[in-house]
Structures are given as C-alpha cells and as structure tokens.
C-alpha cells in the first residue's frame, strides 16, 4: 500500500470512529431517563389482541419486560423490532416481553402486530395496568421485572437497546434468593 493510500485509510478510519461516537451519543441523547426502582411488580391479568390470556402469575420466576407503547408513536414502533429480537434471543433463558398498547384503534393495532410478526403478547390499552405501574404519562415507557418479581428498571423514552439488553442479561443471571 502506498503512503498516500495508508493516509487515506487512516483518515477514513478516524472519520468512521468519530461518526460512531457521534451516533452513540445521539442515541444516548434520545434515551431520556432510566430510573432504578425495586418495588414489587404489580400483578395483572388481561386479554391480549389475539384473545389469549396474559397473567403475570404465569411469568413467575421469569424476567419480564413490560413495554407501554402505541402504534401511532414513532419512537415506540422503532423499538418493536428490537423487542422482537430480544424475545427471540433470550426467551429460552427466561425472558418474557409483554406489550401494553395505549389508545390504539384495535384494527390498526392488530394490523401492526401481524405486519411485524410480533412474537410476544400485546394487551390493548388498559388504564388499570398503567395505574398498577404507578401511572404511565408518556410513551414509550419500559419496565424491567426480575425473577424475584420486583421492578428493577424503568426507561422513559426511546430505549438504548445496548443498555436494555445489558440489564436483561444481568437480571437473567442474577442469583436467586
């Protein structure tokens, strides 16, 4: 490789690294807030959009990710493919993702669910569920519940998935009391 070519490659490498940092910071900026909490997770039962039963008692001993979202909410829909990937990747280790949609037209919600081939249950808008989690006043909002049935994290706003995945893995591997 000539000297000029090496310089060119070096310049491109630095530019790519800098853009990586730029994008990382940009995405971090979108991730509005993370609240660490350790309250007992609320128990709820509901019917999902396929008519199936969603009962948190059935998830005892699992790590549960509860995502409040809506099909009309841009940042929420951007997250869905990543939640699908998380569910697929970690379900055998004990992860269960649950979506709770807010103020969606049922037909729009069902079309979205089928289009994206969502692989986790979605409960249509239910204020009781939001109230049980202490109120949800903005989307998206995501709660992480450990195998001990306690809330271990709350993410307000678009999620930084590297953070969420790290937290999920930590909870999956957390020692049981």
């Amino acid at each position: 490789m000539s000297r000029m070519s090496r310089r060119f490659v070096l310049l491109i490498t630095i530019a790519v690294l800098a853009l990586g940092v730029y994008e990382g910071v940009h995405r971090f900026g979108r991730h509005q807030a993370v609240t660490a909490v350790s309250n007992p997770a609320p128990q709820f039962s509901a019917t999902d959009i396929n008519g199936g039963s969603v009962n948190t008692a059935d998830y005892k001993g699992k790590v549960v990710l509860v995502n409040f979202w809506a099909a009309w909410c841009g940042p929420c829909t951007e997250e869905v493919p990543q939640f699908i990937a998380l569910q697929k990747k970690y379900q055998d280790q004990g992860l269960q993702v649950v979506g709770v949609s807010v103020d969606d037209d049922p037909d729009v919600l069902l079309r979205f669910y089928r289009k994206y081939q969502m692989n986790y249950p979605v409960v249509p808008g239910d204020l009781k569920v939001a109230d049980a989690f202490g109120g949800v006043l903005g989307l998206p909002t995501t709660f992480l519940i450990g195998r001990d049935s306690r809330i271990h994290g709350k993410h307000n706003g678009a999620a930084d998935f590297s953070v969420i995945e790290r937290e999920v893995v930590a909870l999956l591997h957390a020692p049981q009391n």
């Binding site: 509005q32 807030a33 109120g135 949800v136 006043l137 903005g138 989307l139 909002t141 307000n156 706003g157």
Partner: peptide
Amino acid sequence: LANSFGVNWA
C-alpha cells in the same frame, strides 16, 4: 415538553 408530560411536568 421535551420528553413527555410525565417526565417534564408531573
């Protein structure tokens, strides 16, 4: 409200 009514108001 930069993030949401919950975060920036309530």
